[in-house]
């Protein structure tokens, strides 16, 4: 039983100069938003930037994004058969697309 979600995704390198991209994503009920983003990378556009590590377990806590304006983990938010708006965390510095700088300052590389 395949359903379809419409993912409206903010993309860009500069908060002030972004663009929206819309992808129609097939899914089986139960699949996650991260499953949908990974599907887009393989099947539509490998340049889409998303930070994740554990994929599925909600262990790494790296895949935080905003879904319809609310902070979620992309790996536990489920795909739904509707338009879903995905944006980077608005309270963190943007890196690219859905990726933000979420590491604590003491865990970022600095020159010595």
């Amino acid at each position: 039983m395949t359903e379809r979600a419409t993912l409206k995704i903010w993309r860009g390198l500069d908060v002030k100069a972004g663009r929206w991209e819309v992808h129609d994503v097939p899914f089986e009920p139960g699949q996650s938003v991260l499953d949908g983003l990974r599907w887009i990378r393989v099947n539509r556009d490998p340049t889409l930037a998303i930070r994740f590590s554990c994929i599925n377990a909600n262990a790494c806590k790296e895949c935080m994004i905003e879904l319809d304006g609310k902070t979620v983990y992309a790996c536990t938010a489920r795909l739904e058969p509707r338009e879903m708006t995905l944006t980077p965390l608005s309270n963190k510095n943007l890196v690219r697309d859905l990726v933000t700088e979420i590491a604590p300052p003491a865990e970022r590389f600095t020159q010595s």
């Binding site: 554990c54 262990a59 979420i102």
Partner: peptide, 15 residues
């Protein structure tokens, strides 16, 4: 201590 991911979050241990 360098990591490809974030410190202590990626890799196998956390899993």
């Amino acid at each position: 201590l360098a990591d490809r991911s974030l410190i202590g979050r990626g890799g196998a241990t956390v899993m």
